[in-house]
């Protein structure tokens, strides 16, 4: 019983010490990250619509969301994609969000 208790405490401490909410970004800051970057460009030009999709993570323990290009394009009714941007935000490794912006018509 005592061994299990120690093991459980050890696991919690290890998780607390090692985990933090990391986000996909070309640059990352330990304290704060808010970086926008390009993902892809197509030969289509002349965007009139913008669609977004977002996923988030808490402490690197729980991460949820659908950040697929399809979801972002669908949110604005985009059928021809022009280009895609991404944005990664993280605060102290506690809360992180990853967002994509799909441009098109």
């Amino acid at each position: 019983m005592r061994k299990i208790k120690f093991l459980a405490i050890g696991l919690v401490v290890a998780a607390l010490m090692s985990s933090c909410a990391m986000v996909k970004s070309p640059l990352s800051g330990f304290l704060y990250t808010s970086v926008k970057a390009p993902v892809a460009v197509t030969s289509n030009s002349g965007s009139t619509k913008v669609g977004t999709a977002q996923a988030s993570s808490i402490l690197g323990w729980v991460a949820t969301g659908d950040v697929s290009i399809d979801t972002a394009a669908k949110s604005a009714g985009i059928t021809k994609i022009s280009h895609i941007d991404e944005e990664g935000t993280s605060i102290l490794g506690i809360y992180a969000t990853y967002k994509i912006y799909v441009y098109g018509e």
Binding site: L31, Y32, S34, S45, G46, T48, V50, D85, Y103
Partner: peptide, 30 residues
């Protein structure tokens, strides 16, 4: 720490509330 605080707390910085993209027929704002 102070830079972080200013970037998070500043209400005047509006650049994070919109995105813009130059198009052939104008600028697209989101």
């Amino acid at each position: 720490f102070l830079l972080l605080l200013s970037s998070v707390c500043s209400a005047q910085n509006i650049s994070k509330y919109y995105k813009s993209s130059k198009q052939e027929n104008g600028v697209l704002y989101f």
